[in-house]
Every structure is written in structure tokens, then in C-alpha cells.
Nucleic acid binder design. Structure first.
Length: 224
DNA sequence: GGATCTGGGCAACGACAGCA
DNA sequence: TGCTGTCGTTGCCCAGATCC
């Protein structure tokens, strides 16, 4: 659910002290529950409570990703959200429906079916909704986007970006119908190179990939 | 000011999907 | 069936925020 400030050490403490039994209990935590933890004062506790509150209203893709279904990461979760639009539709999906989706093969389909056939998982999902999680509605039909230079192109990001974070850059590319990958291949169209680029820059040059500086990327992003 | 924790970033590796 | 490209996971490092 991408809650800022809630890392593994804190979760460890919360579980150890029996403040939470599963992830849904995080949404029932109070200031008193947090403030008594090690290395936790009022400021941090309030930051975490705000982050928890903000994460309650989430997107379908993020919610699917957060369930931790094997083989379903951020990308596959987005594919499933685009396809099914509603969480209950995904829950009821048949193997055939899942296999008919581009990028979903038998392993992933079986993993999803297995997850939703487990009663413990269903009870956990119900617990999350009872704790106040809401999923933002997805429009039935997406408004047609004007063709953008990034549309249909494959991107890889390297180095430190100064004007935006990687996740923001990724979000912007995806909004323009581009795709973000983690490794350079012959199918990569653009490498966006920030400060202190890694080995990807050399590989991109070898493969003749177009290299964009952060400034060029932002300028092109603003086009159309 | 040191200690601790988190988040961001990179790299490596295994697993998966798609294709010939 | 093997190959290629992509994705997910994990581990490591570093910088920044916060606590004590």
C-alpha cells in the first residue's frame, strides 16, 4: 500500500508487540500504539498516521499489487486493473479469462486463482475493506489520448533524477502510453539518463538506444 | 552529533511470456 | 524447445529525516 515511513523494522516491532496481526490492523493503529515504540516520537508517529490515512483511498492496481500474489508485481497488477476495472470482477475471473489477457500466462493465472480460492486470503481482503480501504473508481472507457512522442515507446531510467523521482517519471511515461523497463535491450527506445548514470548508459550506447538527458525528457514530456 | 531507520537507486539473478 | 526480452525479487549502498 506504499505507506511512507512504515518500514520492516517498525512492522517487526508492531507484530512482536501484538499491536497488529495482519496488514489490515495497520489501519486501526492509534497515536498511542505508535508513540510507545522504540525510536518513535510524536512527529514520526503523526507522519506515519497521516501516511496510513492517505493510503486508505487507493487505486485498483495498487490494491492488487499490495495483496502480494506470487508473480503479480506492479506491472502485472496494472495490466489486471486495466482489464477488469473492478476488484470483484478480478476475484471472479476464470482461468480462461485470465489467460486471454496479453502478458498473463498459465503460471500467473494459476497463482491468481490459487490466491482467491484460499479462505484465509478472502478473510484478509474482507478485513482490509472493514478497516476502511476504498478503491478509486476506474472509468469504464478511457478518454482517447492524443498521440504523444512517447506513446508506444520503451524507456529505461538510469542515474539520479533531480527534478522528479523515478516513480514520478515512470508515472508520466505511462500516462503518455509509454512503457518503462529496468534493463536495456534491443527493444528499448529511450534511455533517460540522470546524474551518475550506471552501466546502462554504456549498454544503451552499444545498442544505439536514444539517450535523453533529464532536461530533454521533461521538455518532450511537456509536448502535445 | 551519533545512531537508527526509511526510501531511492543500482545490479544481479531467476522466472515467466512470447515467439520462431 | 530454446532463445530473447521483460518482470519480480533481493541485497547492497547512500542520503536524508528523525530520535535520543
Amino acid at each position: 500500500m506504499d505507506i511512507d515511513g512504515l518500514g520492516d523494522k517498525l512492522v517487526d516491532q508492531l507484530v512482536r508487540l501484538r499491536r497488529i496481526k495482519d496488514a489490515a490492523d495497520i489501519y486501526l493503529l492509534s497515536l498511542e500504539d505508535l508513540i510507545t515504540l522504540d525510536k518513535m516520537a510524536e512527529k514520526s508517529a503523526n507522519n506515519i498516521l497521516n501516511a496510513i490515512k492517505e493510503s486508505k483511498n487507493t487505486t485498483l492496481a495498487k490494491f492488487i499489487y499490495s495483496l502480494g500474489i506470487r508473480h503479480v508485481g506492479e506491472h502485472v497488477a496494472m495490466v489486471l486493473a486495466e482489464q477488469f476495472r473492478r476488484f470483484d470482477s478480478l476475484q471472479k475471473a476464470s482461468r480462461e479469462e485470465l489467460l486471454s489477457i496479453q502478458e498473463i500466462g498459465p503460471e500467473i493465472a494459476d497463482s491468481i486463482l490459487s490466491y482467491f480460492s484460499n479462505e484465509e486470503n478472502i478473510s484478509f481482503i474482507n478485513h482490509l475493506f472493514e478497516a476502511g480501504i476504498t478503491i478509486k473508481e476506474m472509468p469504464l472507457e478511457k478518454a482517447p489520448l492524443k498521440e504523444h512522442p512517447f506513446s508506444g515507446k520503451s524507456f529505461v531510467l538510469t542515474g539520479i533524477l533531480s527534478a522528479l523521482t523515478r516513480s514520478e517519471a515512470k508515472k508520466f511515461i505511462e500516462e503518455k502510453k509509454g512503457k518503462v523497463s529496468t534493463s536495456i535491450s534491443t527493444k528499448t527506445d529511450y534511455l533517460v539518463s540522470g546524474k551518475s548514470p550506471g552501466s546502462k548508459l554504456a549498454k544503451a550506447k552499444d545498442l544505439g538506444v536514444t539517450i535523453l538527458s533529464e532536461e530533454e525528457f521533461l521538455r518532450t514530456l511537456g509536448e502535445r
